[in-house]
């Protein structure tokens, strides 16, 4: 897929409030995937922290090995996610300027989405058609 190559977190124009407008979905697959990947990465990170903190409170050997196993799995998962994101260009730990650009674009996208009227008032079609059951 070619959307992997270009920067994806960008929404170029202000979004129109017409939800069926096809322009709004420009770059969407990449945007959705990178956002979900980032969310996944952050969740894996807090999972590692939770397990580590819990481990310091647990004395029971059986529970200890269990949580320890989970901690190791979580660390491996975190490594896999960050490798994947680096490969796709969604995450640039070594090029700060690149990462900063991406973050700024994501912030702009979030702001644009926040400015959309996501819950329009009355969308009821009642009365415009013959609705004998109402």
């Amino acid at each position: 897929m070619n959307y992997e190559k270009k920067p994806i977190n960008a929404i170029k124009k202000p979004m129109s409030n017409d939800y069926l407008e096809i322009e709004n979905s420009d770059g969407m697959p990449g945007l959705v995937d990178s956002t979900i990947a980032l969310n996944f990465l952050l969740t894996a990170k807090s999972g590692i922290r939770n397990c580590a903190v819990a481990l310091t409170e647990i004395a029971d050997p059986e529970a200890r090995t269990e949580v320890r196993k989970m901690l190791n799995v979580a660390i491996d998962l975190h490594a896999e996610i960050s490798n994947l994101m680096m490969k796709k260009g969604w995450f640039h730990p070594y090029q700060v300027s690149e990462q900063f650009k991406l973050d700024k674009m994501s912030a702009q996208a979030a702001l644009q989405i926040a400015n959309m009227q996501l819950f329009p008032g009355d969308t009821s079609r009642l009365g415009t058609f013959a609705t004998p059951n109402y």
Binding site: M1, D33, F40, T43, G47, L77, K88
Partner: peptide, 22 residues
Amino acid sequence: VCATKASAMVRFVKDEELRTLL
């Protein structure tokens, strides 16, 4: 929460590798 979220998110993911990870 993680399991619920993963199962919900999988539907929106187009990328194959990310999907298998989830």
